[in-house]
Design a protein around this nucleic acid. Structure first.
Lengths: 258, 258
DNA sequence: GCAATTTCGCTCATTATCGCTCATTTTTAG
DNA sequence: CTAAAAATGAGCGATAATGAGCGAAATTGC
């Protein structure tokens, strides 16, 4: 039995039943587990199905990409969720806060629905969706051109200095695409730099939400130097050299257990 | 039986019946309670359902209140849909248009995804959701405080004159809460009046989308006088006195068959 | 209330699966 | 025909999933 015959068999079963176990394919084809294992790997590489312990299954239905800030799909998401929960614990009734755009920020927004007399300013359309129906929370969305990310929609405006003039935030929660000890905090879109600079002058408590996928990565535009004074919320997965770097400069890090 | 197969089974039952008990899943899958317990935990962590003592149940129906501009539930919606389709037919490739907030406007936005090189400016967060993923269309969302209506989310800003300065729209599509031959076009929120006044000066083609529920009704704040020069799109259900009124003043009405 | 029962969260031992390497077989190319 | 390349099968330690047992907490019945 050739690889193609097996692949066809497997895909047929998948189409029919949605998933197959490895043992089942072994029985049907007479091949050894090692072979079937390889086949499963191939099929996954082609993107035709997803592997999981013990079997192969069709990818989940196309999910609603937004309105689902709390949905957790992988390990990094679990980490983001932990970080968002810690950030949410910092927010007190009556405060005025800014929330940036990003999946972690979405999760944070989803956790703030019950904070009394909270005022949230944001550039994230998806964060607005999480909070729009909460009667306790008033929300202001900053305008701009719509940009669409993997897990969020944000507005981008190169000059928000007029709009934000006169505001002051109790807390500002931001993420970035990468942190590097030389390049600092970086983002993909250079149009975000103006906003980040403005925000850092408009609060005394700037929180950076960093999951472990952010460390030692650099995106296009630097928004803050590496020794920027902010409050970092991350997990114990933060690389040692970062922890030492921040400790040396007295930058506060809240590191959560994974 | 793999985890995925069980999860699928559980979610199917959930979808069907709204809740499942642990013992039931044990019977159906042949797995032990410990395993099913773990599965329930996983599903809850993914945010797909809520655990409670003894079982798993769906959270309140995830209200798809938005992202559903095309959904039709009653007679008035059918009318709005007709009007939105006529409005969409007016939009040509390469144009720059403004779309207001409202259910009809949402439906209009949902119909514009395939118009080439279209630029849309709006205050409607829900319209943004309809258009965000369309590569042909660039979208600008005006900022402001979030207000939530029955079928839409919009931003409200009392003074957009700076933001909109220098813009000109090929077409502007608006709705209102009521039209009255004495009071004119009225809306619930007085903060919309400034925007409506501005917009009327920024285009040569101002479309008013009026379903039959709007006639002879008045809301709080007047945005335009009854003889405002605009292009009306409505249905043949428009009351006779309105039709005559507009005819006398040379105001163009497109009246669709119901 | 209070006791009986069920369910929960947790740990631990057991089992199945994983990823990997290496030897063997089959296929391909010259 | 032979050597290289590809596919397969088997073995190994590591990892993940499972099932059973236990005390704590919640629910039920009286």
């Amino acid at each position: 039995m050739t690889y193609w015959e097996r692949e066809k068999l497997i895909l047929d079963i998948l189409k029919e039943q949605g998933s197959v176990s490895m043992t089942r394919v072994c029985e049907l084809t007479g091949a050894s587990v090692a072979t079937v294992r390889r086949d499963f790997g191939e099929i996954q590489k082609k993107g035709l199905a997803t592997r999981s312990h013990g079997g192969l299954h069709l990818p989940e239905k196309p999910k609603k990409r937004y309105m689902s800030g709390t949905e957790i799909v992988d390990e990094i998401d679990r980490e983001k969720q932990l970080i968002a929960m810690e950030a949410a614990a910092q927010v007190k009734p009556g405060e005025s806060i800014f929330i940036g755009a990003g999946k972690t920020c979405n999760m944070l927004a989803a956790l703030l629905g019950n904070v009394e007399r909270l005022h949230v300013v944001t550039t994230s359309v998806t964060a607005v969706l999480e909070l729009a129906e909460c009667p306790n929370v008033s929300v202001t969305l900053l305008g701009g051109d719509i940009h669409i990310g993997k897990h969020y929609i944000e507005t981008l405006d190169t000059d928000l200095s007029q709009t934000l003039r006169g505001y002051f935030f109790d807390k500002v929660f931001l993420t970035c695409e990468g942190v590097d000890l030389e390049r600092g905090y970086t983002v993909q879109d250079k149009n975000r730099t103006g906003l980040y600079t403005l925000l850092s002058r408009m609060t005394r408590r700037l929180y950076m939400l960093l999951d472990s996928a952010k460390f030692d990565r650099s995106a296009f535009a630097t928004v803050y130097s590496p020794d920027k004074l902010c409050r970092i919320i991350s997990t114990k997965a933060m690389p040692q050299k970062f922890a030492e770097f921040y400790a040396r400069r007295g930058i506060s890090c809240t590191l959560l257990d994974k």
